[in-house]
């Protein structure tokens, strides 16, 4: 009976992940349809290219400007990545402090939540004034935007551990660091990955917003310049590259989640 029920649940899990190939194509077909409609509308109504370029115009701009786009992708990617590491790292450490010290939690959690209500677009100029036009202000803004979701999720995640699990560890004479690394940390991982998925897109957003305020390079810089010059197809191309950067981040996190959180 034991054998049967285990195999049954495994088969069910396999059936869920084994989506037929045809169904995988559906989202691509949907995207293709939207692009085709866009192209058709722009052409039929003869919309001027500086107002809305057709997808084919955007593609041309992408190909023609690929070197500029790639040269400006790296600074933004670097800022976003460093901001991602810094923001999430500090959030995780602070969450650990919150969970282990009720005093620190009571003192600083409300402040953290209050700070969160300030729009990132309002904070960005402050950071640029404080840290200048270089990479540090961008990293800090990207970090700040990643920080809050991870802080909140990690506090919830670290507290989500089953009280009986803690008791079990104590009965086994586990030391406090073992209770942390062998119980709390794992219990928090699904929560952490949910916020990392959010952070993977928002760190790109943070870097680009920071580049708007003041920068010499980066995708945000390209977007601002293209807007001022009415180079609309190029603006769309820069948007597409920014979006691809965020998508790459999300896919990377999703892959990592599948490798790490295997038990769900």
């Amino acid at each position: 009976m034991t054998t049967m029920s285990v195999t049954a649940t495994r088969n069910r899990a396999r059936a869920k992940s084994g989506v037929p190939f045809g169904r995988l194509l559906i989202p691509f077909a949907g995207a293709a349809l939207v692009i085709a409609l866009w192209e058709l509308t722009v052409r039929v109504f003869a919309v001027p290219i500086y107002l809305v370029p057709a997808p084919s115009d955007v593609w041309t701009a992408l190909v023609e400007n690929r070197q500029i786009l790639i040269d400006n992708l790296w600074p933004t990617a670097t800022e976003a990545f460093l901001g991602f590491l810094l923001g999430n790292g500090v959030a995780i450490l602070l969450a650990v402090c919150f969970v282990y010290s009720d005093l620190v939690y009571r003192a600083f959690y409300p402040v953290s939540v209050a700070l969160r209500t300030i729009p990132i677009i309002a904070v960005a100029p402050v950071f640029v004034i404080m840290f200048g036009n270089g990479i540090s202000s961008k990293v800090l803004i990207a970090a700040l935007i990643c920080f809050f979701p991870t802080l909140v999720n990690m506090v919830v995640g670290l507290k989500s551990v089953d009280p009986q699990t803690i008791e079990l560890m104590k009965v086994l004479s586990a030391r406090p660091w073992e209770i942390f690394f062998k119980a709390r940390w794992y219990a928090a991982l699904p929560f952490l990955f949910s916020s990392l998925e959010i952070a993977a897109t928002s760190c790109v957003l943070g870097a680009i917003v920071a580049e708007w305020i003041g920068s010499e390079k980066g995708l945000g810089n390209l977007i601002i310049q293209a807007t001022y010059d009415f180079r609309t197809p190029f603006l769309y191309a820069a948007m597409a590259v920014s979006s691809a950067l965020a998508v790459a981040g999300v896919l990377l996190i999703a892959l990592l989640k599948r490798l790490v959180v295997r038990w769900k």
Partner: peptide, 30 residues
């Protein structure tokens, strides 16, 4: 380790396979 405790909700660690849960006492504590 002369006392064993069996909890109401099994208190198995969800991230460990069954065999590794049973091995847990050999992997924690002094």
């Amino acid at each position: 380790r002369d006392v064993g405790f069996v909890f109401q909700d099994s208190a198995l660690l969800p991230w460990k396979k069954v065999i590794d849960n049973v091995r847990l006492p050999a992997t924690v504590g002094p």
